[in-house]
């Protein structure tokens, strides 16, 4: 009876046009300024680490797709984002096998065995980092890693410096230098300005949730400020903490990873703030120089609990009382 077949599917028949590819593409784009700055600052080896990290992360996802006989999913660029985030957290001089092992842990253990995109309870890149940091601690000492480099600024990793020399060491680093990337650190985490710009871009585009980033920064500043007020000899000031280590990378790229962060408004604020608080606690009281990785993983762990605080749905409970 019909001469031709019509497409039959279900409402809504419109879509706002967004997709996973778009989102991940934008995240990659937003991370580029910081990553490129890292390459210029630390040279070809940094580029090698980043390239290997992105490439191997996508490779591992491809392998896992094939082994588990699932449709290929590297086209959504999620593995590329994990790879780039992971690479940006590494020191510029990192052995190739460390990078490949790290992305293996990140993509396979951190994401794919949980069921792939959206199913990971923890930020995959951080899982990779945490395992590597526990396994081969020596490679993550920025001072040793960069010992052969000559810079025109203080050649000390800021957080390690205050850890071992006390808060007085913070005076060796001006906040402006830290913000503009004149510091020793991981490839993608040194250029504060680039990270902030990328973060603001993602917030404006609606790809990350501003509530998390903002409350995270507030958490860092408030906690560090209180520590600094109580004992300024032992604890560095809030701005120092904000612009050193992985803090800004965490604020805009790691804390905000979709699957492992809350989506309701109040939980987002709690999650972000607690994240900031935990990092400063770990840096000031714990034994790690930079607690960002473990602090965020800890928050990922409590995310499902926090995210239970949600508004009553229409027509449920006491809404009409």
């Amino acid at each position: 009876m019909n001469k031709y077949k019509l497409t039959v599917s279900h409402a809504p028949f419109w879509h706002d046009g967004d997709s996973l590819f778009q989102m991940n593409m934008n995240i990659l784009l937003a991370a580029l300024p910081a990553a490129i700055f890292g390459i210029f600052q630390f040279g070809a080896s940094a580029f090698g680490v980043l390239a290997l990290s992105v490439g191997s992360a996508m490779f591992w996802e491809l392998v896992m797709n094939m082994v588990s006989k699932k449709p290929l999913s590297i086209g959504d660029l999620d593995a590329a984002v994990i790879g780039l985030m992971f690479g940006m957290m590494l020191p510029p001089i990192t052995p190739w096998w460390v990078v490949i092992t790290g992305t293996f842990v990140a993509v396979i253990v951190g994401k794919m065995i949980f069921g792939g995109i959206g199913a990971n309870p923890f930020n995959p890149a951080l899982i990779g980092m945490a395992i590597l940091m526990l396994s081969w601690k020596a490679f993550f000492d920025f001072d040793t890693s960069l010992v052969d480099f000559v810079f025109d600024f203080t050649e000390l990793a800021p957080l390690a410096a205050i850890k071992f020399q006390g808060a007085g060491a913070a005076e060796m680093f001006s906040v402006g230098d830290l913000f503009m990337g004149k510091e020793v650190g991981a490839i993608g985490s040194v250029f504060g300005l680039g990270l902030v710009l990328g973060g603001i871009y993602l917030i404006l585009r609606g790809y990350i949730r501003w509530e998390i980033s903002l409350s995270f920064i507030v958490g860092i500043i408030v906690t560090a400020f209180i520590f600094n007020m109580v004992n300024s000899e032992n604890y560095a000031g809030p701005l120092f903490h904000l612009f050193s280590g992985y803090t800004l990378l965490g604020a805009f790229f790691l804390m905000t990873e979709n699957s492992s962060s809350p989506v309701n408004t109040i939980p987002m604020f709690i999650y972000g703030f607690l994240g900031g608080l935990m990092i400063i606690l770990m840096r000031n009281i714990g034994s790690y120089a930079d607690g960002t990785v473990l602090a965020i993983l800890l928050l990922n762990l409590v995310n499902p609990l926090i995210d239970n605080i949600r508004p009553k749905a229409l027509g449920k409970g006491e809404n009409n009382a």
């Binding site: 599917s9 028949f13 996973l20 995109i117 959206g118 979709n258 699957s259 989506v263």
Partner: peptide
């Protein structure tokens, strides 16, 4: 016609 997918929820909120 916008394409649909069988992706899992990624929790973007």
């Amino acid at each position: 016609i916008p394409a649909l997918s069988d992706n899992a929820c990624i929790n973007c909120g």
